[in-house]
């Protein structure tokens, strides 16, 4: 079984300075679940090979060594300093990996920075693979099909049976993410990331603009701790809630 896992490294916007590119980086959470699903298949079928690919900043590699420690076999960075659209990223990933004969491709359900949920299905489109989105768990049946359980809107869970080769986007909720083992760490030591340099100029038909949203719509409660407690109590009391 040959599996490709797509993992994105994103800026951690917690300090609300996004998109200020001095922020720390972290792995997109949903992509940890994508890797986990591939590892679960490898647990059962040990001759499975898992390749991880990331498209983005050169300093992503350090973080993604963790994927090798957890059990992935190789890591490729397609280096680009520009933020391209998910469809363009997917096309570039496709053009590098189209001849590798993957049986399954896993991606996350969504990148937490731009929240597009479109890279995975677009990649399936380029490969012409059948696909499913927002999966919580998968099970390989006779090496030929994947049983995929997805959680969609309104608490609806759909189970699909998909013929390989196929692509699945993973969300959280199905599995626990494993930690690297000592052997995993040792195995990962000698492994280097393959780096592909890109000179893809930004698609000129698109331009992006960001504006800080005037996000605070309601009342920002100010004052000392006691004043704020008093204020909130009074407001909720007036509304008959307390």
């Amino acid at each position: 079984m040959k599996i490709l896992v797509c993992m994105k490294v994103i800026y951690d916007g917690k300090d609300n300075a996004f998109p200020d590119y001095d922020l720390p980086l972290r792995i997109n959470r949903f992509d940890e679940y994508a890797l986990e699903e591939a590892l679960v298949i490898k647990d059962k079928f040990p001759d499975t090979a898992i390749d991880v690919v990331t498209f983005g900043y050169s300093n992503s590699v350090g973080l993604l060594k963790k994927a090798l420690e957890r059990g992935a076999d190789s890591l490729t960075l397609i280096e680009s300093q520009e933020e391209l659209t998910p469809v363009v990223c997917a096309k570039l990933v496709y053009s590098h990996f189209k001849d590798r004969g993957y049986d399954i491709i896993f991606t996350g359900a969504m990148a937490e920075d731009f929240m597009s949920s479109s890279f995975g299905p677009a990649l399936a489109g380029f490969f012409s693979f059948p696909f499913a989105v927002a999966a919580v768990s998968c099970e390989l049946v006779n090496d030929k099909r994947l049983l995929v359980r997805c959680e969609l809107e309104d608490g609806i869970a759909v189970t699909y049976s998909i013929k390989l080769p196929c692509l699945v986007t993973m969300q959280s909720g199905g599995r626990e993410i494993r930690y690297p083992t000592l052997t995993g760490k040792l195995n990962a030591r000698g492994k280097e990331a393959f780096v592909v340099k890109l000179d893809q100029k930004k698609d000129k038909s698109l331009s992006y603009e960001y504006k800080r949203k005037k996000a605070v719509k309601g009342i920002l409660i100010e004052g000392s701790l006691d004043e704020r407690c008093e204020y909130l109590y009074n407001e909720l009391h007036k509304r008959g809630l307390l």
Partner: peptide
């Protein structure tokens, strides 16, 4: 917009050589 339609839209965009923007 929905989880299902996002998936369908992005897949189609790749097949039709279009761009895709969700939500």
């Amino acid at each position: 917009h929905s989880i299902t339609n996002c998936g369908a839209a992005a897949f189609l965009a790749a097949q039709f050589s279009m761009e895709c923007f969700t939500a």
